[in-house]
Design a protein around this nucleic acid. Structure first.
Length: 480
RNA sequence: CGGGGAGUGGCUCAGCCUGGUAGAGCACCUGGUUCGGGACCAGGGGGUCGGAGGUUCAAAUCCUCUCUCCCCGACCA
């Protein structure tokens, strides 16, 4: 495959993103299926690592995996009023199967609350059946009009957790526990700092009482909603008649939660760390942590270098790039744009000195390391990269977060921000969760991303749109 | 659905205005010299120009119709 130049971030951030996805062997547009993509080897390997990190944590918090049907009877969606209203426009519907018109069409799942609600009703009879804690890894279809690889595609991969509880307090605790799991993975695995918060009424999940999210800042200052956790209250319990007998012997509806993250996280990962040379992956999510490029001219050099290369690579767990047809230079570019954290160079010079050259993907620095020390040094370097990538992203988030005390100020800060040109900010302002506020911010295409759970600023203040008092500043930004 | 753009070897595109039945770079194949940041030379294979119709001695090029894709907008956990 041709390795084309990568557009600079400063020139056009949106095009840069596409270039990095393509050149990093992460994905390519399917073209033959509208709005869909092919997740390629490197991209899928990152997803597998991410899945593992998430799944381990789901299990550790008591959840079990299950799998439900892809097709959902259309009538199921209609049982919860807000849910059907929210999802109807983006449904794909199967009306013909086996050569016959179906009596009742199926929708391809846009999310599984409804079909899972149906089974909850079957399975839950007593308080002893609760809590029921399950998760599903699945694909989802939502007929979006505007798609971008990983960030919003017609079909995408995700996990959706669904739980049922005897009390609202218990359900609320679950919602926040899983939000914490997401934040932990985002920050400690993806090296992507996030803000945990509550979504506004306008932005909450269709059918939920409350939606919480983690919001991350991309390098263009856009916000990316990276994971959500919903307090569904008894809405779906009532819609699907999920009743249980409590300890007092009375019938009650269950309190449900649902929470999800998707392959969108990979888009966030790319836009958090990558640079003008291509993909940069945090070591914890790099399918290949180190590649060794052997360098030689003459045949006798070749033999010695390759022997040493394979021996050292085996010792430290690196992959040797011993392709004959490529020059070392071409190999450096190849692995660089695929985001491999460490590239090792080994040539005659190194055999003579007993060193090996270690290059870090994040900083681009090259350092000779004694071959004997490499096995000990490599894990330390990878750990340091992981930390340093987080620190850099955190610093950028801080540097691009500003306070504003009037709507005009917010507007002037965000008005001209686009995904292509960048320059986005997280503007912290006092804004009431109200239709009037949403409408005013829509004039310059910004939204309240979330109401942070932890107020790091100055407490209550007057809403810059309505004048009413609100208890803390919220995050206003442009978003994907 | 409104505005804009594009369909030509695997990929990116030139040629179209001023019709004469296809070109470049990359990729690929063969041989040789290279190899510490995208190597070079020589030779070679591969397309009939999104589709349909029309004008013409002659159409990638002009005309008509049509299909598809991309971007911007509206839409969107």
């Amino acid at each position: 495959m041709a390795e084309s130049p990568i557009t600079a971030r400063s020139q056009d951030f949106a095009t840069w993103y596409q270039d990095v996805v393509l050149q990093g062997d992460m994905a390519e547009p399917a073209e033959i299926v509208k709005g869909c993509m092919v997740i390629k080897a490197n991209g899928y390997a990152v997803w597998e690592l991410l899945q593992r990190k998430l799944d381990d944590r789901f299990k550790a918090t008591g959840h079990q995996n299950m799998y439900f049907p892809l097709l959902i009877p259309q009538s199921f969606l209609q049982k919860e009023a807000e849910h059907v209203e929210g999802f109807s426009p983006e449904l794909a519907v199967v009306t013909v199967a086996g050569g016959k018109q179906l009596e009742e069409p199926y929708v391809i799942r846009p999310t599984s609350e409804t079909i899972i609600g149906h089974f909850f009703a079957k399975w839950i009879k007593s308080w002893r059946d609760l809590p029921l804690l399950l998760n599903q890894w699945a694909n989802i279809v939502r007929w979006e009009l505007r798609t971008r690889m990983f960030l919003r595609t017609t079909e995408f991969l995700w996990q959706e957790g669904h739980t049922a509880h005897a009390t609202h307090e218990e359900a609320q605790a679950e919602v926040l526990r899983m939000l914490d799991v997401y934040a932990d993975v985002a920050e400690n695995v993806m090296a992507m700092p996030v803000i945990k918060g509550l979504k506004t009424q306008a932005e909450r999940f269709a059918g939920a009482l409350r939606t919480y999210s983690i919001e991350a800042m991309m390098q263009n200052g856009f916000a990316l909603q990276s994971g959500t956790s919903h307090d569904l209250g008894q809405n779906f319990g009532k819609a699907f008649d999920v009743q249980f007998q409590n300890k007092e012997g009375q019938l009650d509806y269950v309190w449900q939660t649902s929470w999800g993250v998707s392959t969108r996280l990979i888009g966030g990962l790319i836009m958090s760390h990558s640079d003008d040379k291509g993909l940069v992956l945090p070591p914890k999510l790099a399918p290949t942590k180190a590649v060794l490029v052997p360098i030689f001219r003459k045949d006798e050099e070749k033999e010695k270098v390759l022997e040493a290369a394979h021996r050292i690579a085996k010792e430290v767990g690196a992959k040797v790039d011993d392709r004959e047809a490529q020059s070392p230079g071409a190999k450096f570019f190849h692995w660089e744009r695929r985001g491999v954290p460490v590239v090792l160079e080994l040539g005659p010079r190194d055999l003579a000195s007993g060193n090996i050259v270690l290059k870090r993907r994040d900083t681009g620095t090259k350092d000779p390391v004694p071959q004997a020390e490499l096995a000990a040094r490599l894990p330390a370097v990878l750990a340091e990269m992981q930390q340093s990538m987080y620190d850099t992203a955190k610093q950028r988030l801080k540097a691009n977060t500003v306070l504003a005390n009037s709507i005009e100020e917010v507007e002037s800060l965000l008005k001209d921000v686009t995904a292509e040109k960048g320059g986005g900010k997280f503007v912290m302002a006092h804004v009431k969760d109200a239709a009037e506020s949403d409408l005013r911010m829509k004039e310059f295409k910004a939204t309240v991303r979330c109401i942070p759970l932890v107020d790091e600023y100055d407490g209550p203040g007057k809403c810059i749109v309505t004048g009413e008092t609100v208890d803390r500043r919220v995050v206003v930004a442009k978003a994907y």
